[in-house]
Amino acid sequence: MKLRKVTAAAAAALVLSLTATACGGDDDSDSADTGSGGGDKIKVGIKYDQPGLGLKEPDGSFSGFDVDVATFVAGELGYEPNQIEFIETKSADRENALARGDVDFIAATYSITDERKEKVDFAGPYLLAHQDLLVKADSDIAEGTDLNGKKLCSVTGSTSAQNVKDEIAPDAQLKEYGTYSECIAGLQSGAVDAVTTDDSILAGFAAQDQYKGQFKLAGLKLSNENYGVGVKKGDTETVNKINDALEKMVADGAWETAVKENFGPADYKYEQAPKIGNIVQ
């Protein structure tokens, strides 16, 4: 299934934003005042290169589960979709982007950890992901130990592949590529036997039209990754408002719709929506 430019969740956010009574129309500032609700625009940090989660399309539009979550949240804060400015926020720069005020909040596969909570505040979690393996659909790799002697790919600097080697497959051959797109291409060509990172990221790639039916997730659940919405440290008011928005997204079905539309073709065995504040260790 082709990733949709506007999913049902994003459409729901549009309706909500049009009817929101908290929308502020008298603020002349260029940046958001998320604490009081409304403004000319709101700046949201996302990934640009993760299909199914945060992807900038060739026509300049955005798609993915994180995009749908961010659009819904922004709607609840009083912003229409055309008032959202999506800003690429790479993993290494997320804390700094919030501290500098480059973005108002971040929805970008941002796992909640104790170390990160020292620098930023988190709303959520809104998705529980797990480290997993992506293999070819006809692969006989069913467990991590089956990777001994096989080529395992992850991106340069990631700890995912080393975790597999350290914990379950000491004889796996690690291959580091610059991007997950390169890893997936290597899996398709046979240059590597498996790719490892969060299952949500792997499912997003596997759901793309050009890969439909070619890959499968092993379902190993090697770690727990609690995705949260990052907010500038100390902004408790915005955290509370985003938590309210996330709860509403789950309650009205938009959360599940977004999961199925973005990850469905990969047969992603997703966890049910986590409870706000419930961090699974």
Rank of each mutant, 00 (worst) to 15 (best):
A20M: 00
V44S: 14
L53S: 04
P58L: 01
D26H: 15
S63W: 07
D28A: 12
D28P: 02
I46R: 01
C23M: 03
A22E: 10
Y48G: 05
G39R: 05
C23Q: 05
L53I: 02
G38I: 05
L55K: 05
A22K: 07
A22M: 04
S31A: 03
S36E: 07
V44Y: 11
K41G: 10
G60D: 09
A22H: 03
S61G: 06
S61C: 08
A20W: 10
K56F: 02
K41W: 11
G60P: 00
T34E: 12
G60F: 12
S17H: 06
K47P: 05
D30S: 12
C23I: 04
A22V: 03
D30T: 10
K56M: 03
I46S: 03
G60A: 14
Y48F: 06
L53W: 05
S36D: 02
L53K: 04
P51N: 11
S31E: 04
K41R: 12
D49C: 07
A20G: 06
Y48R: 09
G35S: 01
A22G: 08
A20E: 07
E57I: 03
T34K: 05
G54E: 11
G60R: 15
D59P: 00
Q50D: 02
S17P: 03
A32H: 05
K43T: 04
G37L: 01
G45N: 06
F62T: 02
T21C: 08
D40W: 01
D33M: 03
G39M: 05
D30L: 13
S63Q: 13
V44N: 10
T21A: 09
D26Q: 15
C23Y: 00
K47W: 12
G45K: 04
T19E: 11
G39Q: 11
A22P: 06
T19F: 13
G52T: 07
G52F: 11
K47T: 14
K47R: 15
D30G: 07
Q50M: 10
I42C: 13
G45Y: 04
G38V: 02
D28G: 07
I46L: 13
K47N: 15
P51E: 02
T34G: 05
D27V: 13
G52W: 13
D27Q: 11
A32I: 00
D30K: 14
G37S: 07
S63D: 00
Y48V: 00
